[in-house]
């Protein structure tokens, strides 16, 4: 079944150190149709702690989708991705790499680390909002994901 039918708000984890981008993503999601809970962490270490419910993240929800930036403080987005995909419990969570980089090597590397998709943040706001909406729609209404 997909998220739309479950009735509960979808859990999204945004790993992004730039508050401007955080807000933009939030604004874009707000314009979307889905009810969602957006959790935000600002670096890679925090992201993994959140996923493993460690430290102050004890009781954190298991996200249905992860938006992962690549350039992060403390722990790089690529390492976070690698650890998620190496973890039996976490690797089924779809990870959308959302970054400003258009670099070919980044694209190849992240797919090799089993990223579920790679999206370059559109520079234009309209485009950005459109993309976020499309992603939300795609992952929560079109795609079927395993339960829990």
């Amino acid at each position: 079944m997909n998220m739309k039918q479950s009735g509960r708000p979808v859990e999204i984890l945004l790993v992004e150190d730039n508050p401007g981008d955080v807000r933009l993503t939030l604004e874009a999601l707000r314009e979307g149709k889905m009810r969602n809970n957006l959790s935000v962490v600002e670096d890679g270490v925090e992201a993994l702690a959140f996923l493993c419910r460690e430290g102050r993240h004890v009781g954190a929800p298991r996200p249905d989708l992860i938006f992962l930036d690549l350039n992060l403080p403390k722990k790089d987005g690529r390492e976070v991705l690698a650890q998620i995909k190496a973890d039996e419990n976490l690797k089924s969570i779809p990870v959308v790499v959302l970054t400003t980089s258009k670099a070919e090597e980044d694209i190849i590397k992240t797919y090799n680390l089993h990223a579920n998709c790679y999206v370059t943040k559109p520079v234009d706001l309209e485009q950005f909002i459109k993309v976020v909406k499309l992603l939300e729609d795609f992952w929560f209404t079109i795609v079927k994901l395993p339960q829990g």
């Binding site: 730039n18 401007g20 981008d21 933009l24 604004e27 400003t100 943040k121 520079v123 234009d124 706001l125 309209e126 950005f128």
Partner: peptide, 17 residues
């Protein structure tokens, strides 16, 4: 430069919107 500019551009566009 793209990063901050994207912020400027995005938020003025958001303002406009």
């Amino acid at each position: 430069l793209q990063e901050p500019l994207r912020m400027v551009a995005s938020y003025v566009q958001l303002l406009q919107r």
